[in-house]
Nucleic acid binder design. Structure first.
Lengths: 220, 220
DNA sequence: ACCTGAACACCGTTCAAGT
DNA sequence: ACCTGAACACCGTTCAAGT
């Protein structure tokens, strides 16, 4: 027979659901979507579920533990193509498919870039990715090429995360102002191009060039 | 005839040199070398020159103003090759020459990656870099290729900055433990390779592959 | 076991007051 | 003009005390 305390104490009497790791992580995911992984505080997280900061420690751990749990969930959402595709298509689909997911959770891409394979949820897809390149005939270089492709994608998305609207606005003004500067023709060309193509797909361009570079290693 | 106050007040009487923007920035550069651009506090900086935090505000401005001044100084240290070199050699020398400088000022590379051409001291070299690619015959794509090459170098160095000894150590352990895992052959190959080549030059490999990718655009 | 509420040692920034 | 010293509104984290 449950005592009063065992079915919920002051929280349930106040109409609040019991704090669970699941609820903490869900609130952290929501805060990450809105503010980015590094831009919410434990106190915000606690307030979001109507709890005291110390309760987060009791149920999940310190901020780092919450962040790890968020990472795990986001990585689980990342789509992975069928591994029988040609290697180039496979990586193109993989990384262009990851971008929109990672961009909705700002800050996660940077964690992946810095911690890489240390994020356990990443293991199965890395295993798969190295396999795709080895079957393509890249030999030992498969490890380097795989690391490079994943890292470049993560890093590039991480920078997109960090470029807030303020920076994008100031960049747009700069590009417009550089258009007519014959004294610096290279910068003028840059201003002209980026002023006319403000949403140019640098991610796709970089991915294509790196894939070209890896393809060239298979031809030799 | 100078009054007592005008030649220095309590600081000079205490044997301390007057606070100047120059001295503030030099102390900030030293802190950045030791802890990284985002890992020192304004209070540390103030203490470093024997001053109160409010004095930094009086002479330089807020933390962001100090960071901008640090950026400017570090960018001024970056070597730039003669612009008559072949484009590929020019970029290889440029970016491999930047890496050791940027690595001694952790956090600067990330600022460059995120703010790019918004760092004024970067303008002349960007102008030069676009010119090198245009003279090589890359046309309008010069802007994209230049942005890509600089960004990938900055991002890759930024991640090196953020991978402290703790992370590198845990990664080394992971690689060793993955060596003998026939159930995940791709990860095993990765563990074997990185365990035997812990200091593999991923920066150089990435730079070479991207340069290959850009070179392929010139052939077509 | 779970939650409360205060406390600790920080942070960037501001500001009235001194000299 | 330059510096002092306290204050403000934060932060992550810890902990004794309540129920």
């Amino acid at each position: 027979m449950a005592t009063y305390a065992s079915v919920g104490g002051r929280r349930s009497r106040a109409g609040l659901p019991a704090v669970t790791p699941e609820r903490v992580v869900r609130a952290a995911l929501a805060l990450t979507r809105e503010h980015g992984l590094e831009n919410w505080t434990l106190r915000q997280l606690a307030a979001g579920i109507g709890a005291y900061p110390a309760v987060i420690y009791h149920h999940v751990g310190d901020r780092e533990a919450v962040v790890s749990a968020v990472l795990e969930r986001v990585v689980a959402e990342l789509p992975v193509p069928e591994s029988d595709r040609p290697w180039r298509d496979w990586f193109e689909d993989l990384l262009t498919g990851w971008r929109p997911v990672l961009l909705t959770y700002p800050g996660v891409a940077r964690r992946l870039a810095v911690h890489g394979a240390l994020v356990p949820a990443m293991h199965t897809v890395i295993d798969c990715a190295v396999g795709v390149l080895r079957r393509a005939g890249l030999g030992d270089e498969s490890v380097l090429a795989c690391t490079l492709l994943l890292n470049q994608a993560w890093q590039s998305i991480a920078v997109e995360d960090d470029r807030g609207p303020g920076i994008r606005e100031r960049a747009a003004e700069l590009h417009a102002s550089l258009r007519d500067r014959p004294d610096v023709p290279g910068l003028a060309a840059l201003g002209r191009f980026l002023d006319e193509n403000p949403d140019v797909d640098l991610f796709g361009y970089g991915l294509a060039r790196t894939l070209d570079g890896v393809a060239a290693r298979l031809e030799s």
